[in-house]
Design a protein around this nucleic acid. Structure first.
Lengths: 338, 338
DNA sequence: TTAAAAAATACAATCGATTGTATTTTTAAA
DNA sequence: TTTAAAAATACAATCGATTGTATTTTTTAA
């Protein structure tokens, strides 16, 4: 931005023939300035159209009152809801929020963390990309005195809090629901096994099968990034397999595209194949048959993540917590097996 | 962030017994530093774990290489696609992007602009909120030397470029499509008439009716913010009206919730009432019947918006442009009237 | 009225990087 | 070898706000 147009505290000071330190204190409502001069300064400031330069302020105080949010992609309803929760809480506490998308790319995630560090944000809320296996970029940020809280996809990293749901339990519940509806050959759409989230979801599926005396078949576990295309590809494989009667997908996106493809191939959902998804995307209630899915407290996850981070930043609480939220299985029409 | 941990160019300079200005120039790859010392400095920098403090740099250069994006809400697919386009182009040009949601609130929008100004972002890309009637907040930003480009919802403001679609034409086309499919009593879900976008959409509807000799009935224009709830409320009104046989909605969200409600009331879509939406949300192809809608080049709109703004910032082009993109009517099942 | 205490304000260094100018060192030409 | 030109580096001011310390002014109490 052009410099000439910028009004600084020095301009105000000069206009009133006082010192800029007094102006600074007045603008910050310090008790060290009399209310008379405060008023004079405030008046002059608005007269001149003064706008505080936060860059300068941040540099001096080495505090930006900004938190960075790294999210795989904002277009997923779950994530945009989490962000809303984050923003609300952050705003109340006087923090700005910078939203960044990693698009599930590790390389991009690294760059984003670097940029956030260079910009000296006070803390980072991150749901790591599906490719993230190394945490050096995050460690670098921590070493510079930053705070990190994981949300949705927890990671084992010292000195970080996390907030997530009980993926294992949710998965167990979803799978058991299919079994109780008569499914015996259940395919699982699983995500990258490098992250705990998808590991836990797979394990819940495996254990539910075991509990009900169904043999686990590795070929029934289709691992992918759970995109729309992946859902279609999985559906094709399922038709080749022949005897599949249930699908438990780690997200709604893949479940929905699979349903759509299967319908075009004359498969009856849920009669032939019952389906359960994960996330409760708005689209899941619109598709026919409506999709049975797991609902997560997304907005709440955002508010809690924000709170954990701000507490960390402000040192109110030095201990690290791993909070787990409850989920809910929403039973709709895609899973009624009769 | 804590100060003690921070390595500065002065630390590097001290360690090598040279001046910090040389370090600065070396890190910026200036020709004024010999390649030998450059290498020494680079090595020492990585050895000490140096991370440039952009705050300081920005303060000195009064350039942040950051653009602010104000969006009504990121959860709308159209907007998240625009953002992707913005990010891609901005990144290539070396700019960071800060995404902010106004949630259609004017008050919030004002605060966001203020924050972006305080942070001295080089430019703002904005789709104004549905409540925005005054532009003083934007003028203040312009007065401080900032650049503004409007996207999707253009505004009459001096010295600003804009990128949008031909809402009038799209609306005309959508309405005409309904008429050609036999509709005579077409209700229009319109948005706040304070913005050109919704004015144009309404006018296109009105003129299409006129062209085909259908009287315009103000009662058939239901104005709202086009939320899900608004769609349901409109649907109820339509049932009370009795003889409505077509709906043209200014967005998909309202169209879809209306369809869902009407279906529960035994209305056959499209036989009894044909429906056309706007935006081509992913959900529009999933709902049954699939929704006829207007597809906008969302990603492209983002890239062009970014380009216009960056050109403005870098003064490559001082003239102000109003670009208009072409749309496409996607005909699906919700509008076949027989 | 005067001294001490309290309030208000001024001075000056600082945050970390950038950049115009000055100085020193190196190179090239005479 | 000497000198001019070019290259490399050092010096010092600056961006705009903050903040500890010093000074001045005002208030209070004796």
């Amino acid at each position: 931005m052009k410099k000439n147009e910028q009004v600084t505290i020095h301009d105000i000071a000069r206009a009133l023939n006082i010192d800029s330190s007094t102006v600074s204190r007045a603008l910050n409502d310090s008790p060290r300035v009399s209310s008379k001069t405060k008023q004079k300064i405030l008046d002059k400031a608005s007269e001149l159209g003064y706008q505080r330069n936060i860059l300068a302020s941040n540099l001096r105080t080495s505090k930006t009152n900004t938190i960075g949010v790294i999210v795989p992609r904002i277009s997923r309803n779950f994530f945009s809801s989490v962000i809303s929760g984050i923003e609300e809480t952050a705003q109340e506490a006087g923090y700005s929020v910078v939203i960044c998308q990693s698009f599930e790319s590790f390389e991009r995630e690294q760059k984003l963390v670097e940029t956030l560090l260079a910009n000296r944000v006070d803390g980072i809320l991150i749901s790591v990309s599906m490719q993230t296996e190394s945490y050096d970029h995050l460690k670098a940020y921590l070493n510079h005195g930053g705070s990190i809280v994981f949300y949705d996809r927890p990671c084992q990293l010292e000195n970080c809090s996390s907030i997530s749901i009980d993926d294992y339990k949710a998965s167990f519940q979803a799978t058991e629901h299919l079994i109780q509806n008569g499914c015996r050959h259940i395919v699982h759409f699983s995500g990258p096994q490098i992250n705990d989230l998808y590991k836990n979801r797979k394990q819940g599926y495996v254990d539910a099968l075991e509990k009900h005396g169904i043999d686990f078949n590795e070929a029934y576990c289709l691992e992918s990034k759970l995109s729309e295309n992946d859902g279609v590809a999985h559906a094709k494989k399922i038709l080749e397999m022949g005897n599949v009667d249930g699908i438990y997908s780690s997200n709604d996106t893949a479940a929905i595209s699979a349903i759509q493809y299967l319908k075009t191939q004359g498969v009856n959902i849920p009669k032939d194949i019952a389906v359960v998804g994960f996330n409760n995307d708005p689209i899941s209630s619109v598709i026919e048959p409506s999709l049975t899915t797991i609902n997560q407290p997304d907005f709440e996850m955002g508010t809690i993540a924000s709170n954990l981070l701000i507490n960390k930043i402000e040192n109110k609480n030095t201990s690290n917590e791993s909070k787990i939220l409850d989920i809910e299985l929403i039973i709709r029409n895609s899973s009624k097996h009769n």
